[in-house]
Design a protein around this nucleic acid. Sequence first.
DNA 1: CCGCTCTCGGTACCCGGTTATCGATTCTAC
DNA 2: GTAGAATCGATAACCGGGTACCGAGAGCGG
Lengths: 213, 213
Amino acid sequence: MHRETLQRYMNYLLLLTKLKSEGRATVTSDELAVREGVTGSRVRQDLSALRILGKPRQGYRIADLEILISSMLDILSAKPVALVGIGNLGRALVLSDIWSHAGFDLVALFDNDPALIGTSVAGLPVRDAAIMERFIQEQGIESACLALPADKAQAVADRLVDAGVRALWNFALIDLDVPAGIIVENQRLEQGLMALSFRIAKRNQDIARGPQD
Amino acid sequence: MHRETLQRYMNYLLLLTKLKSEGRATVTSDELAVREGVTGSRVRQDLSALRILGKPRQGYRIADLEILISSMLDILSAKPVALVGIGNLGRALVLSDIWSHAGFDLVALFDNDPALIGTSVAGLPVRDAAIMERFIQEQGIESACLALPADKAQAVADRLVDAGVRALWNFALIDLDVPAGIIVENQRLEQGLMALSFRIAKRNQDIARGPQD
DNA sequence: CCGCTCTCGGTACCCGGTTATCGATTCTAC
DNA sequence: GTAGAATCGATAACCGGGTACCGAGAGCGG
């Protein structure tokens, strides 16, 4: 599945949550399509791929969509995950509610700063990074989040993989080098900002060239 | 230009920086291609679109690529940008070096927490959100970053747009409703984590189905 | 009960992104 | 200087995601 398709599913889910909160029970393919800048045909194909059936003149049942998309993304489970690096970014992530929304259960925090070790964030103790491997092995944790400076990320990633972690969510701006089969999802904040820069430049060019085109 | 193409350019840039730091002066299309999981043909077309010329048996000059890709993304400029919301995420962003790397100059911080107003982060004073509109108008700031809870983001976005901001980098997990012509770049951390969840589920399925396929 | 309308499900088509291919060019080796 | 290898630039072929279209079924109005 292509990244863009996956993103559409996630956006459907976001929109469904909003619709449900408004009391809606069903939604048509065209409604979902407009928000994504895509046609109803595409939405129907997306949903058809998940074996979701709608009804003519009614649309799709929102509850069904939520369950099926969620289970495809496997965000209803509670995969244990560790977070390494309790800086500002790490703390922001700990305090957010994204973990459960994405099927994870944040169970451990690690840092190597003596001033932080032993403190708590959102009820979770910050543990000494020195015991990281042992803890991860004992708990059978297979996912980890790296909220570290770029120069420390590779070394920590190596240690995590050795300890049994098989999926990494990486915020450091480097290309992690990991063995085959280990999943790395890079969250490149910088790229979002660069994309914004590009879009601004493009808009300004377009305006300069022909405002009414 | 499609999002994926844009991302390739940004990844080229990231790799070029790394290569340059290793002392390399030129790079071949195939080298760039491998990292992106794409063919040399595609890279050559990407670069050709920027009117970048390479030389047979040598490749492309890294310095040229950097300049041309950077100027396409307009990341060599220093567009003033304001950041609203000095929580953990906001602080992490202030302290990062992404702004200059993406062609922005972080010039103002805003929050409405009296305990924060007047303090400094990375040398920048946190200003009272009450004077946000005036400051932005006076300084001619056209870009802003929203590092706020979802329930406050829309209201702040409205105020910013009224004050003249025309591009938003939004970390709140909502679809901002803005007038036509205003650019919104959503940085959905949640989606990165969901994508990781999906990829883990998919890998586990693949392994269960046929390890050697 | 009978059309009418709306929306789904499936199919065919289209377009653009990706790959493959080939001639052209330049560097290396001898 | 010449042969050979490597790599670019351009073009053609391919492929798959996206769209358009059409028939079918479900609700609505009379």
